[in-house]
Design a binder for these strands. Structure first.
Lengths: 375, 375
DNA sequence: ATGAAAGCGCTAACAT
DNA sequence: ATGTTAGCGCTTTCAT
């Protein structure tokens, strides 16, 4: 028991604590002169106050066995009294597995309802394991993705869940090799063999086209994003394949790709509707585009004359009048699956990379069941 | 220059690199025997490969002056070649200011559209300064708030932005004292003197009541959350004060507090509408409750007979039919103001704590302009 | 059951 | 302009 002077052979500025039992003890290294009150207590402070060694405090904090219950209680009391907080950064620096109990989540946009629902699912999974998540938005910008992932690397996250934006992910190879698992979600990685959880994009638009054709439509327009985005490409493929499967041709004049925003989609839909030979149905490749298309339909007062089916469900879709028919995949399902996969890797699973594909569902609500009308 | 053997008096396992100029150098401490290939390169590896000292690498990485351009270029090449990534955790451990370039963001729910818009605003502000943000959800649970903030403390975040859930924040006092700034947003802290950015909640509901009264309404119901939540209390106060200001009494039978979800609100609104002496207008204290109320109105087929005004704007409010009149405050504005305040504190501002109140706006869209009808 | 000492990757003070 | 050394707060190894 060290009552005064120095701890080990490290020189300390003496600081006295008074414990319940009236024992006083020494604490806090203080080479630089600063007001002690503004310093955070360290394990050494706790050790001194509890009258035990540094290692014992470490054992208690990490819940390791080999400490008597009485000692542990004293340590816990000291922690409480000093408002001590373990430093996971310093801890991870020295620990063998270098784990930081932190994961990175690379999203398209944390404020997109689909992405934020996915975020919440990942957060909940992480919390169960006492892990925190760094989330960030890339806005479909590959450069920002690299930048953000670089920042995650610099913080030594234990793993990452990524909605990819970049056209090439081979730059992540060293990271994977060093043992940091990366799970791709919503879209598969490019030029990299890694785990992924995606939705059946092609199947979704195929299903949507079939639904519209079954409803009598033969002139179906398409609103899609840049074909550089894997999801967008697959969805467009489903549209083409769907038409082909029903013996219909793709009419390039009613296909609008490369859209980026609600406004883009609204403009594109407005153009299509203004045309003399306008489509009898609109198929939108993404939640935001569906909203834009809906606005255009309302603006042109053809809400119940031109059908609309959207990919991705969105909040309030069922409250609109008419409610919006969508092809939906559950972001929570994607997020949970991705997290499960990531944690399995963190737990040491080294089996070949997996490609999980979640099914999509058609949710008929009204807007997609409008029969075709001409003029 | 060290060509072989040991670096300083630290024993190393020798590892040879060949540089462009043909100089070979030593690297990588390796006490534990592990395959070197699976190790992350450290500054020492970079230093060895570039044929310079450790400090020089540190200087280059941190962009400090005092390194010749030729040396810097050699170092950068080595960094590139080894795919070296700076370890901010280790860096922060040793650096004087202990900064981690990380902030914590404590939200009610990352998936709530209001919260995720705020999140995005904070993220964008943080990115400008090269900082990352830990976001998490507390679901109005004070215990979860403390738990999450504890995890943030353990990761030594530089500062926090908090949408408070707990009934008492004095537990954050040691954190503030140790120099970690905390800015409260959307709601003020309780039992703690700290910065806050809030909306004019009382003024908002007061305005809403006045608007409805001006439209001829005298029987206005209220749907609100638990009065333990500061925002909820202020909004309810604005409702009462608004009625009083127009000589109207609060009728407790048409006030429903303590709601927690869309479903709660839908049920409460349905009850109010089923009653013989039903209100002519509904005032909702929160975005989710507005959605619930809207559903109930539609269910009872009184969408254009009973008026509805909601607090908080929400996506697609203007797309509904009738579009929803709301009292809105901008989450982006709140987020940006909170971030600005936090960064000012991080830059050393020690002036007395600030209480910023953002104005709210009435956005008449239709649902709130329905004239009162009886029966 | 407990403690002393070494050292994780880095920055800062002090050389030169 | 560059290098050497100490040590940030912690975990681990090896004592006892």
């Amino acid at each position: 028991m060290h009552l005064q002077g120095a701890y080990g052979n490290v020189p300390y500025t003496v600081k006295q604590y008074r414990t319940n039992s009236g024992i006083s003890a020494v604490a806090n290294t203080c080479t630089r002169m600063e007001t002690l009150s503004s310093q955070r207590p360290t394990m050494l402070d706790v050790a001194a106050l509890a009258g035990v060694g540094l290692t014992t405090v470490s054992r208690v904090v990490n819940g390791k066995r080999g400490v008597s219950e009485t000692t542990a209680a004293r340590v816990r009391a000291a922690i409480e009294q000093l408002d001590y907080r373990h430093d996971v950064q310093a801890s991870s620096l020295r620990r063998l597995d270098r784990k930081t109990a932190t994961i990175g989540l690379v999203l398209e946009d944390v404020a997109n309802p689909f992405m934020s629902a996915l975020h919440r699912a990942v957060e909940d999974s992480a919390r169960e394991r006492g892990m925190l998540v760094f989330a960030g938005s890339c806005d479909e910008d590959g450069g920002r993705e690299r930048e953000f992932i670089g920042a995650l690397r610099a913080r030594r996250v234990d793993g990452m869940i990524v909605v990819p934006a970049a056209p090439d992910h081979s730059y992540l190879l060293p990271e994977l090799r060093v043992g940091t698992p990366v799970v791709f979600v919503d879209r598969p990685p490019r030029f990299l063999d890694a785990d992924s959880v995606t939705a059946d994009d092609r199947g979704g638009t195929f299903m949507a086209v079939s639904h519209l054709v079954a409803g009598g439509h033969a002139r179906i327009a398409y609103l899609g994003a840049d074909q550089g985005i894997a999801t967008a490409e697959e969805r467009f493929r489903g549209y083409r394949d769907g038409l082909a499967a029903h013996g219909l041709d793709v009419d390039p004049t009613i296909v609008r790709l490369g859209l980026r925003s609600i406004e883009d989609a609204e403009r594109a839909a407005a153009e299509l509707l203004a045309d003399g030979r306008r489509p009898t149905a609109l198929l939108s490749g993404q939640n935001y585009f569906t909203v834009g298309a809906y606005r255009a339909l309302r603006e042109h007062d053809v809400l119940r004359r031109v059908a609309l089916v959207g990919f991705d469900d969105f909040p309030l879709a069922e409250l609109l009048d008419p409610p919006v028919t969508v092809v939906a995949h559950d972001p929570v399902e994607l997020g949970l699956a991705a997290a499960r996969l990531l944690f399995r890797r963190l737990d040491g699973d080294r089996s070949p990379s997996e490609r999980i594909v979640c099914p999509v569902h058609l949710v008929p609500r009204g807007s997609g069941e409008t029969p075709p009308k001409t003029g």
